[in-house]
Amino acid sequence: MAVCERHEELYEELDSYIDQVKDKPGILIGVLHKAQEIFGWLPQEVQEHVAEKLNLPVSEVYGVVTFYNHFSTKPKGKNEIKVCLGTACYVKGADRVMDRMLEELGVQLEEVTPDGLFSVHAVRCLGACSMAPVVLVGEKDFYGKVTPDMVTKIISAYKRGGSHE
């Protein structure tokens, strides 16, 4: 499985983190957070590696990975677009934002665009309900009171220079 050329470097980074925390009880989820941060997603190979390092059955690691929404066993786009479909956003028209987003990028939900730049995900409540409907790009770029017509503009900001800053 080709993770990328920086393969070994990434594993080293993960291992040095695991070594720091492995004696803390119940640290598996913390390690998976870190692993996903490093690799972008959690391929089987990485899950097996984590299991071995923490001395856990792979089945348990896989169970945890698939249980939580945050962990992904599929690659994601460079810019992960999360459209909130929680009730507060939904009543403010989040479904129309979602429709436009998928149409604009020409992808299905959770599918990566051919250029690898985007993937669209549906999430439930980002805790910013007074700004509904809300779209989150990456981890920190929040967009509030989004209308379908704003979608093109949001996407284009990331087409140019990666991140909008």
């Binding site: 929680g86 009730t87 409540c125």
Partner: peptide, 11 residues
Amino acid sequence: DEGEPGTFKDR
């Protein structure tokens, strides 16, 4: 773990 849609007080 404030996950209740519509709630943001804890945050």
